[in-house]
Computed example of a mutant assay.
Amino acid sequence: MIDLLNALVALLNYVVIPATAYGAQLALGALGVTLVFGILRFSNFAHADVMAFGTMVVIGVTALFQSWGISFGILPTALLALPFGCLATIALVLGTDRVVYRFYRRVKAAPVMLMIVSIGVAFVMNGVVRMFVGTEDRTFSDGARFLISARDFKAATGLDEALSLKTTQAVTVVTAVIVVAALFWFLNRTRTGKSMRAYSDNEDLALLSGINPEHVVRVTWVIVAILATVAGTLYGLDKSFKPFTYFQILLPMFAAAIVGGFGSPLGAIVGGFTIAYAEILFTYAFKKVAGYVLPEALQPDGLAQLLSTDYKFAVSFAILVIVLLFRPNGLFGGKSA
């Protein structure tokens, strides 16, 4: 019985908790991607760099607050800086839409053209972010490091395995739940949210109903900016901030959006957790768990790891390809990817 408990704690510590936190971050990022695709009808390859920009602003405001002696107790001070990052990112995406994307909407450019334009926007944003913050890893999490520490857990339970829960992991999950609940309430209960859904389902019919398309576009970009800033900040708090790392997680976010169904907010959430758990399960070394649950004669000699952690993003790519081949509309039947 003790061995089973140790195995369970090891799985919780190294698989379930990190995968849940990572899945929440991917889900928020995928929500921004799927909203742009569902309402503005193009794949926004600049989304990860929008996340990096918003996080950069949060880091700057956090440093300013810390210099003034302002903190948030056991919670990261970055949570206090988050509204400022959201405002700056809203200004960025609205300005980018006005200067770049609006022209292509007016001439009714093909979605592939807008996708190519977004790649150019991504390079510009990435260069701007790196110019201001450099290319090195930055950590900006403060407050209490752990809500549950390994030492306290061992002392309380007497188990060999120790469970630890980082404050940033708990903050990620709680914040994601609040943001997602607020988003679904807005989309389903408010007049503007219903207009956005109508515009996404049938643009021509929505226009005949008197819906202002430019208002829908502006509100969409505002929501996307908030989601990007929150997702980027939570990812940076949980891991670290490095501009190019955000470009790398674009693949898992798109994979999450496509797995769930491009254009489906619920699908983006399910897809985010699916990708996160798949990445961690395929790259986790199960030797320790096997040592607790298997007889000595059956215990593996190696790490019992399907893939090295270097191939984590390959898991996302493989899932993406499989879904595109066999179910291109995703699990929840979104728009064709």
Results as ranks from 00 to 15, higher is better:
residue 233 T to N: 02
residue 222 V to Q: 06
residue 180 V to M: 15
residue 254 F to R: 00
residue 208 L to G: 11
residue 79 L to H: 10
residue 141 S to K: 07
residue 315 V to Q: 09
residue 315 V to G: 05
residue 241 F to N: 06
residue 181 A to H: 13
residue 299 Q to M: 08
residue 108 K to R: 15
residue 165 L to Q: 08
residue 172 T to P: 11
residue 73 G to Y: 11
residue 227 L to E: 07
residue 182 A to W: 07
residue 52 A to Q: 05
residue 273 F to A: 08
residue 217 V to P: 02
residue 200 S to E: 13
residue 235 Y to C: 02
residue 65 F to T: 00
residue 86 C to Q: 04
residue 260 G to C: 12
residue 26 L to N: 03
residue 138 R to E: 10
residue 110 A to N: 15
residue 17 I to D: 04
residue 90 I to M: 14
residue 169 Q to D: 14
residue 55 T to D: 05
residue 333 G to Q: 13
residue 149 S to C: 12
residue 250 L to K: 05
residue 329 N to D: 13
residue 252 P to M: 11
residue 35 L to A: 10
residue 197 R to F: 10
residue 290 A to I: 02
residue 117 V to G: 01
residue 268 A to D: 11
residue 292 Y to T: 02
residue 18 P to F: 00
residue 214 E to G: 12
residue 139 T to D: 09
residue 262 F to W: 14
residue 68 W to Y: 14
residue 305 Q to V: 01
residue 74 I to G: 11
residue 244 F to D: 15
residue 65 F to S: 00
residue 238 D to Q: 11
residue 53 F to E: 04
residue 286 F to M: 09
residue 170 A to H: 10
residue 158 G to F: 09
residue 111 P to W: 15
residue 216 V to N: 03
residue 205 L to P: 00
residue 148 I to F: 03
residue 48 A to D: 02
residue 190 T to V: 15
residue 67 S to C: 11
residue 229 T to E: 01
residue 328 P to R: 13
residue 291 G to D: 07
residue 7 A to P: 08
residue 167 T to K: 11
residue 204 D to S: 14
residue 49 D to A: 09
residue 144 A to C: 04
residue 250 L to R: 07
residue 286 F to D: 01
residue 37 F to E: 04
residue 23 G to S: 06
residue 264 S to G: 13
residue 192 T to S: 07
residue 334 G to T: 03
residue 235 Y to K: 02
residue 237 L to V: 05
residue 281 L to W: 01
residue 325 L to H: 00
residue 94 L to H: 04
